[in-house]
């Protein structure tokens, strides 16, 4: 059996996944990176996108995360996500509705802070759509 990496996916409300995996591919802000055992320690920000979990050379789980942080050490990969949903649980209609709502929020926003938040939501929804197609 190959070496495994302890993968942890945590959202503010709970610990979503904590299991040994062969490899994970994380959407880093400067490009996707795969984390295998014995990876050099690194810290990265995560852009909205899909995390792929590999077991025995095949993808077994795909999870959408709406941005966050990833910490990789030789034996562990921790992803702190603001929001995380298994890709299978996302429906195109719901995401489309979310995108529309976010766009409307941007139109109505008049303060810089609200605008930034709405833009962020649009980016997340667009990334969800891209992940689905």
């Amino acid at each position: 059996m190959a070496e495994t990496l302890e993968f942890e996916l945590v959202s503010p409300s709970k610990l979503l996944i904590s299991q040994p995996v062969e490899m994970v591919v994380v959407p880093g802000s400067e490009g996707n990176f795969g984390a295998l055992p014995q990876h050099a320690p690194m810290l990265s920000t995560v852009r909205p996108g899909v995390i792929d979990i590999y077991q025995k050379g095949a993808v077994v789980n795909r999870i959408f995360v709406a941005g966050g942080f990833a910490e990789v050490t030789e034996t562990r990969c921790t992803v702190l996500a603001e929001e995380a949903v298994p890709l299978a649980d996302l429906s195109r209609d719901a995401v489309q509705a979310r995108l529309t709502a976010a766009r409307e929020a941007l139109q109505e926003a008049d303060q810089p802070l609200e605008k930034a938040q709405a833009k962020n939501r649009i980016a997340v929804a667009e990334a969800m759509l891209a992940a689905l197609s």
């Binding site: 409300s13 810290l43 921790t78 702190l80």
Partner: peptide, 13 residues
């Protein structure tokens, strides 16, 4: 209790 892991890991980072 469910919120603690996130806080702990964030603190570590």
């Amino acid at each position: 209790e469910a919120g603690r892991p996130y806080a702990e890991r964030m603190e570590r980072m």
